[in-house]
Amino acid sequence: MTTDSTLIKVINLEKHFAGGKVKALDGISTEMRKGEVVVVIGPSGSGKSTFLRCLNLLEVPTGGSILFENEDLTDRNVDINRHRQKMGMVFQHFNLFPHMTILRNMTIAPIKLQGKSPEEAEKYAMTLLERVGLGHRAGAYPSQLSGGQKQRVAIVRALCMKPEVMLFDEPTSALDPEMVGEVLDVMKSLARESMTMVVVTHEMGFAREVSDRVLFMDEGIIYEEGTPEQIFNNSQRIRTKEFLSKVL
């Protein structure tokens, strides 16, 4: 049953490569409620990034369904571009557009896709930029920014579309250690504003402190899930314990 507060419902999601020989996702079912922060952890190769990228169909699932606002995204007749506008995504390698200024990076999608006027889009973009402390870099190009600054811009670029959910794919993994904090701070403040977030990360501190629910993935399935308290302090299953003992 889908309740009113369910934003994304994943049903038996599968992603097979090489004609079924490699099962990156092997039957995943879960749901994300509005305002919930879900953190996905697990060893490398466990399928956690593939899972995240399937949610907005950057990877096309080979089986199962994804209900977003009660529409099945895996249905061929669904206009995925319309739904992606409501699913912001932040990448490990930022993927800012290098030929555009920071401001243009943020306004091009609202202007071209949502019919916003340039003034309106820029005003909103500037508000968001100020909030992450980068208002003074609006006219700069991505190559002139540090990694942490780039990732903060990437987050607010996605926010400019006023998404219903934000997907984070290892947002701090490509950063120098001293820049991780500034990005996590932005994500924490988003969580406080009750943005729905799905975060694939190796930052266990963030998972513990901010998340409502932790999914531990291994070998293409959700091996264990629970509150941060349950997973980090009271894990019931052997591979979760093994993994946590290595990373904590």
Binding site: N81, R84, Q85, F91, H93, F97, H99, L113
Partner: peptide, 30 residues
């Protein structure tokens, strides 16, 4: 052009052609 540019465009909601026109070809042209 890095695939990430393409994915960033698509994830914002641009369709294939829009991504090509606004994001990929200007960089390729340069």
């Amino acid at each position: 052009i890095d695939d990430g540019q393409f994915e960033a465009g698509r994830s914002l909601g641009f369709n294939y052609v829009q991504t090509m026109v606004y994001i990929i070809t200007p960089q390729a042209f340069k």
